[in-house]
Design a protein around this nucleic acid. Structure first.
Lengths: 205, 205
DNA sequence: GTCTATACTGTGATAGAC
DNA sequence: GTCTATCACAGTATAGAC
């Protein structure tokens, strides 16, 4: 009988290289933009030849795909960490969530660009990676449900409002406050519309 | 003394070829997406060789640039044709403008993708092409001013709301009504917020 | 399993002949 | 103006060394 090691060092190392590939890709994306990620560039950073990457990833789009899923999972984690389930002050909680999203996007524009399709030509997230974004959506929907918002239309309204503000902020005033500064007003508008009570945020941002 | 022709047939023909290049590029973009536009593809459609295009266009990005300006001028024309200066019923006018924008975007997703940066890697609209988008912005701002909306923040609010709805509609329910159908509600929210009077649209869409 | 060398295809772009 | 030829660079497929 052969003693099986309780840890598979081989697959551990394999996972580590895969992670390193993603890290190098992120590094390039952050520095020079998403489109600047090339297999040769990633390979250079790793001290490898470009074709060698195919031992660990199926294609370049597979790298984007993994990054896409990773990005949405990071957002889910950030939202969960914020623990905005404060039913006592729903408007403040929603404002915090909105600011969190804008700041999350502004903190890594390349990441946000990848999250909001269609950033890369010919890249369509796989069902598995897309599931990560759906989970983040469900997470936000849950939070809204905690505030009494259940109608799908009301949830659609929220997503359109927040992403609209985020896109405008990043595209026209990156790092500024032109739209971000209006978030209290936006959250008030939304809460008034969907019937979330509480004191207005506008006067006391 | 040499008789100068009163029309420059040469430059007329030159302009015609340039237009044809753009038309072929649009044709490809509409059929297979913006990224599918290839110099060889355009040249094929024109019965030319790819390098010959450089006699009429400085680069591939110059083609995108011309398309960008053209797209925004088309939107300006569409908005002007709508003649939404109906101060009697501002809410209806704004709803018409909002629907016009969503439909304009949905009518040619590739065009809208190009209008909303950053659609193509390494493509940044030239100052001249960008001016076309600024003019469209000024046009909308003028219309809003006609309804008493003058604060820059209020105009920013409008753009974020409309583009947010449009993006969500195209990305998650292309050709549908999921967000488009909520436009009356959105316009009401906006008008209530910025102080545009009139009967609510919600009940009578 | 992991990496390399080589090579194929397609891209935007340039040079120079006609 | 348009052509042919060619370049540099991309993603990727394959064969084989270790």
């Amino acid at each position: 009988m052969i003693a099986l090691p309780n840890r598979d060092r081989r697959s551990e190392r394999r996972e580590a290289t895969r992670r390193e590939i993603l890290n190098c890709a992120w590094q390039i994306a952050r520095a020079d933009g998403l489109a600047a990620v090339t297999l040769r560039g990633v390979a250079d950073l790793m001290g490898m030849r470009a074709p060698s990457l195919y031992s660990h990833v199926a294609s370049k789009n597979a790298i984007y795909d993994a990054m896409f899923g990773q990005a949405w999972r990071e957002w889910s984690a950030a939202l969960a960490a914020a623990a905005l389930t404060a039913p006592a002050e729903p408007r403040r909680a929603l404002l915090a969530a909105a600011r969190l999203f804008v700041d999350f996007a502004a903190g890594d524009p390349a990441r946000y660009q990848l999250m909001s399709q269609p950033a890369i030509p010919n890249f369509i997230p796989s069902a598995e990676a897309y599931a990560a974004s759906l989970e983040a959506y469900a997470q936000m929907a849950d939070a809204l449900r905690g505030f009494g918002v259940t109608a799908p239309a009301d949830i659609d309204l929220w997503t359109a409002l927040i992403t609209g503000f985020t896109n405008q902020q990043l595209a026209n005033d990156p790092g500024g406050e032109r739209w971000r500064g209006q978030l209290p007003r936006l959250v008030d508008m939304y809460c008034d519309e969907v019937g979330i009570a509480g004191p207005a945020l506008r006067s006391s941002p």
